[in-house]
């Protein structure tokens, strides 16, 4: 089952930002997430944990503590002063029951719930790989890292991970056929 991990707090045609329900509760980089009604899929990019109030920066507190856990235990208020958000690059949607790997007509509404996709859902959605093109052209600061992470994350969900990896890399190669240097850098991140 898909697990609910957060809620949309900012939304654009190409990406949205979700706030996590749990501090440090963001899905991994490259993970596949989905909103509900309408179903919009996306891949996790930048994850940020920061103070809720930017005027009150976080201070270091552990100088005298024995372990990092002690710091958290001794300052229970901290969890409420901090928040985690993650950026999601939209990579497809469901329209009339059909999964499309291109941008939806409208971005998800703010406050839409965000779910982390189950392995079955991941395997199904990444059965096609047009999303890689969307990610490569997303304009994200580290698009190549996101692409690499996405492929690595999705592979174990497939029955034959190695074949999926090769398939994905061949798709990348076609997309980046004019830029071998960039292609090479992504392939090296994916190579098992």
């Amino acid at each position: 089952m898909a697990r609910r991990v957060g809620e949309v707090v900012e939304s654009t045609s190409t990406s949205f930002v979700a706030q996590c329900y749990q501090l440090e509760g963001a899905p991994a980089l490259g993970g596949l997430v989905r909103t509900d009604s309408p179903d919009i899929y996306g891949v996790v990019g930048q994850v940020t944990t920061e103070p809720l109030d930017s005027a009150r920066p976080v201070l270091a507190r552990g100088e005298d503590a024995d372990s990092e856990e002690d710091v958290i235990r001794d300052n229970p208020q901290l969890a409420r002063l901090l928040t985690s958000r993650f950026e999601v690059y939209i990579s497809g949607h469901v329209e009339d029951g059909v999964t499309r790997q291109y941008l939806p007509p409208r971005p998800p509404r703010v406050h839409s719930f965000v779910y982390l996709c189950s392995p079955e859902e991941v395997s199904k959605f990444t059965g096609r790989l047009d999303l890689l093109r969307l990610l490569l052209n997303s304009g994200a600061a580290h698009a190549d890292e996101i692409v690499g992470a996405c492929i690595r994350q999705a592979a174990p969900a497939h029955e034959q991970p190695d074949e999926f990896l090769m398939q994905a890399c061949k798709t990348l190669a076609v997309e980046l056929s004019g830029d071998v240097a960039r292609l090479n850098s992504i392939l090296r991140r994916v190579s098992p």
Binding site: C169, K170, L176, S177, V180, L183, P192
Partner: peptide
């Protein structure tokens, strides 16, 4: 002119037939 990891069969296979 691009240095490629020729000893990585995975990368080489991905490049073959595409690029």
């Amino acid at each position: 002119y691009t240095p490629l990891p020729v000893d990585d069969p995975f990368v080489i296979q991905a490049l073959q037939g595409t690029v």
